[in-house]
């Protein structure tokens, strides 16, 4: 439960309210993690916040978090400049099912900041590209200026071995990409729905309707995995803040097979 001390090695602005911190441990020990897991980041004197790891699992010596400045703690994290220190507990939670995806088509569907928790999984798939079938990334953002990792997406697209569709909810007339909801991209993507595995991260309403579209395309809910988010405090399933039906998202999630949590998606005030 004791946080380790990390130092901000670099900071990048991603969008108007989202930034990325690259962190190095004061004790120089690696922080090994599996794609999909999260850490509790502690802004000293302000509090902790659960933040998914968005870096490369193959580089455990450099911890990377992409964070949206939303509340007290994340705004405090946003104020950290290179050289500043913060506390880190983790990693916690379940991982994306990358082993189960081997040999199959892989469909990543992200909405907004939801691309950040998927990034480690995408990096791992691209690093072992031959182990997977067709790989598709469908990404929705609010506006062109809200697209995360725009330069990296361009590099991924240039590889030619991953099909990428980006859409935004609204755009000016200078935008040449898609405008519309991310769910509409499912039918444009080339994958074998009967033998594909999908990983979804974004607002729950987006994930719910994406599952519907994937089902229309022929994919079973058993082959869909979602990353959920709730208020977390202890991160070790003691406090109950993140309870979701019978599940504790910090311990049993954040990545769940969709069929395990499907009935809770429609439950109100949960």
């Amino acid at each position: 439960m004791l946080p380790r001390v990390f130092t901000v090695a670099a900071r990048h602005e991603e969008t108007a309210d989202t930034f990325t911190l690259e962190l190095l441990a004061e004790d120089a020990a690696d922080l090994a993690f599996a794609p999909g897991q999260f850490n509790m980041l502690y802004a000293f004197g302000r509090g902790e916040s659960a933040i998914s790891i968005s870096g490369d699992a193959a580089e455990p010596q450099r911890l990377v978090h992409t964070i949206r400045a939303v509340g007290t703690v994340t705004r405090a994290l946003a104020e950290l400049a290179p050289g500043a220190q913060l506390g880190v507990r983790g990693p916690y939670g379940t991982a994306w099912p990358l082993a189960a995806a081997r040999g199959r088509d892989v469909v990543f569907v992200a909405g907004g900041i939801g691309l950040a928790p998927l990034r480690p999984a995408i990096l791992e798939v691209l690093a072992a590209r031959r182990d997977y079938g067709r790989v598709v990334l469908l990404y929705g953002a609010r506006t062109p200026g809200d697209v995360l990792y725009a330069a990296e997406i361009a590099r991924w697209r240039a590889r030619g071995d991953i099909e990428i569709h980006v859409t935004v909810d609204a755009a000016g007339s200078d935008w040449r990409g898609n405008v519309g909801v991310v769910t509409q991209l499912v039918r444009r993507a080339g994958f074998d729905a009967a033998h594909a595995l999908a990983m979804l991260c974004g607002p729950e309403i987006m994930m719910r309707y994406t599952v519907v579209e994937l089902g229309r395309a022929g994919m079973s809910p058993n082959d869909v995995h979602v990353s959920l988010e709730r208020n977390m405090k202890c991160a070790i399933a003691f406090c109950g803040h993140c309870q979701y039906g019978p599940e504790f998202i910090c311990r049993d999630g954040p990545v769940f097979p969709y069929d395990r949590v499907a009935r809770w998606f429609d439950a109100r005030e949960l």
Binding site: T18, F38, S49, A50, I51, S52, T66, I67, R68, A69, V70, G71, T74, G93, G111, G112, I113, G114, A116, P117, C201, G202, P203, E204, S227, L228, E229, R230, N231, M232, I249, C250, G253, P254
Partner: peptide, 10 residues
């Protein structure tokens, strides 16, 4: 007080 989509664990 912030739930889904806020930049936390998902």
């Amino acid at each position: 007080a912030v739930a889904a989509g806020a930049g936390g664990a998902a």
